[in-house]
Amino acid sequence: MTAYLESLAVLCAIAAILASSLDLVLGFAGIFSVAHAVFFGIGAYAASLVALHLTASLAFALAVAMAAGAGAGLLLAVPALRVREEYFVVASLGFQVVATTVFEQWQAVTGGIGGLTGIPPPTVAGLKVESYAGMAALSVLLAGAVLAGLRALVRSRLGRALQALNQDEVAAQAAGHNPVTLRTLAVVVSCSLASVGGVIYAFFSSFVNPESFTLDESVRVMVMVIMGGAGTTAGPLLGALFVTLFPALLSFLTIPDQFLGPIQRLAYGLIVVVLMVYEPDGMVGLARRLRRLRALAPAGKPGESTA
């Protein structure tokens, strides 16, 4: 049971890293990417290759994975500068499909469909982290660092320039911001941070295969951001926790195994639809609405505070 909770903590940390880093481009820079799982995958493959062939040092794996993620991010930045909105959604979709095929077919590097196995546990400052508890602590620490870094970035001059660009490109340009540099930087940072999630995933599961980095995963991350509330700090975190923990909650119900997966996903799909129809600002919007109701309650008729 503890092992189960600890592994859930690792999965939540990974989801939080993916959702928050995607929100940098999606919520703050207005670049609608459905290719985030590609960078998650690149981080995981890079860490696995380093751990299998060079060293199990976490710091080294992180450095290599983030560099690889940033490099691949440059590829995605090219269409991001050319096309916007629905066109970019489809461009990133194309990027995702091509990358999935490369993961599956590039036997020599990715191990093809079978993937890479036998990844050793990571070492931190010479110490081997083997236990689930150690892995959970490490993941939560890394997620905390990524989230704090993103928060600082969004509040910096650079982050504000990015939001200005998203709201009014002409005005932002007139204020001296260069859209090409800013957008490229946002995409590269976002992709590089997503690969941190991949590093944790590779060390935690000790094997990686292309199944974890498909379009489904990309859309799942996007759903976390939109469901939670794009362009906020709390939103992606809430969305990540909900999307990761929700199936775990349902698995406590007594449903026959072969129906459990489809029922989980059916319920998840329906919740997403209902939330989007009634509260397009996501869970953050929902919380805001509740807070407003509570603030109004003393002034309103008694007993109607939860209406």
Binding site: L26, F32, E85, E86, V89, V219, M222, V223, I226, M227, A230, F259, G261, P262, I263, R265, L266, Y268, G269, L270, I271, V272, V273, M276, V277, Y278, P280, D281
Partner: peptide, 30 residues
Amino acid sequence: RPMRGGRQSFLTVFVASFGVFVAVENAVLL
């Protein structure tokens, strides 16, 4: 139709649509 003309952005509609897609696929699976 309930989503038309509100605060909905392109992305919210996309995500809602994706939700429908997931629900239908898994209903068929069941």
